[in-house]
Amino acid sequence: MIVENSKVILSVKNLTAEVEGVQILKGVNLEVKAGEVHAIMGPNGSGKSTFSKVLAGHPDYAVTGGEVIFKGQNLLELPPEERSRAGVFLAFQYPLEIPGVTNSDFLRLAYNTLQKQKGLAELDLLDFDDYVQDKLKVVEMNPSFLSRSVNEGFSGGEKKRNEILQMAILEPKLAILDETDSGLDIDALRIVSNGVNQLSTAENCTVLITHYQRLLDYIVPDFIHVMESGKIVLTGGKELALELESRGYDWITEEVKV
């Protein structure tokens, strides 16, 4: 929701980045304020995931120019763990499997690290279990997933749900959801969208990366951006999604050239 005079949470200016010497981001500009939901769409390979990983601090990507200010702080000078502790959360397009680490140990370690950072009490096994049970409800996830290794053998949709569970536990200020909808069946899409809506408040903000209008029926964005060859080339309201759905991306490329 657009809130008048709300604080800017994320401000990206002229961000350029490369991977293995190849420039992928070619001057991204984006401003996201508290309470807002933004969607980023765009063709395959246009740099959407790269953008999200650069924000999260993935070491493979080298920022070559521009700035990223998060809650008044230069995000680019922080290591990844400090970005996440400051409130940046990335739900990965392809969540990794971590054999041998149980989901509950992983979630508890992440949560307690954050608590410690905030100067708050860490939770022991039992208290954390209570805390997690509530969060499981947000994504209607079966508790049996807690005792399994992180994402190991999870179906595509289950992995995505597990990402949103982590988001529910860490309560970020900025959540970037990279194609969280892909791989979800119709019911799961509704459940996960519901979860994301429950988690969004006037204090935080969400950036959705998606290919499909369908998701945006559930999580209604305030702005839609189109990324193309490493840049945001078009920004509009939620109705832009319908236009993209019927016309594709070619016309934008044409217009940008003109």
């Binding site: 999260a56 601090g57 990844p80 763990e81 996440s84 990965f92 971590i98 370690l109 954050l114 860490l170």
Partner: peptide
């Protein structure tokens, strides 16, 4: 895998 854990607050 390291990055995944770091992105979840773990140093």
């Amino acid at each position: 895998e390291l990055f995944y854990l770091q992105s979840r607050c773990i140093d």
